[in-house]
Computed example of a mutant assay.
Amino acid sequence: MSDLPYRPCAGIMLVNRAGQVFVGQRIDSTLEAWQMPQGGIDPGEDAYAAAVRELGEETGVAPEHITLIAEAPDELFYDLPEDMIGKVWKGKWRGQRQRWFLFRFLGEDSDIDIATEHQEFRAWRWSDPDDLPAMIVPFKRALYEAVLAAFRPHLAADETT
Rank of each mutant, 00 (worst) to 15 (best):
M135A: 10
E108D: 14
L68P: 03
P37R: 05
R141Y: 01
G24D: 07
A156K: 06
W126T: 09
P37K: 06
P37Y: 02
D131A: 15
V137M: 10
H118N: 14
D111N: 13
P81A: 10
G91Y: 15
F121H: 07
R26T: 04
L31M: 05
E71K: 09
E32H: 03
P81D: 14
A10R: 04
L55V: 08
K87Q: 12
E120A: 11
A70Y: 02
Y144R: 00
A47P: 08
Y144S: 05
R125T: 14
E32T: 11
K92T: 03
S29E: 14
A70S: 11
A123C: 03
A72E: 10
F101A: 11
Q20D: 13
M135N: 05
E57L: 15
W126H: 07
Y78T: 01
D79W: 09
P129E: 11
V21D: 12
L106A: 06
F103C: 01
D42L: 14
M1L: 08
D111Q: 05
N16S: 07
F77Y: 13
A70W: 01
R97Q: 12
E82P: 02
G44H: 06
R104V: 00
I85D: 04
W124N: 09
D109S: 11
F22A: 10
E120D: 08
W89G: 00
L76I: 13
W124Y: 14
L55C: 04
E54R: 15
T67G: 05
H118V: 00
V88W: 12
F151K: 01
L4P: 01
F151P: 02
R94D: 06
A50V: 10
W100D: 12
V61C: 05
D74A: 12
I69K: 08
L14G: 04
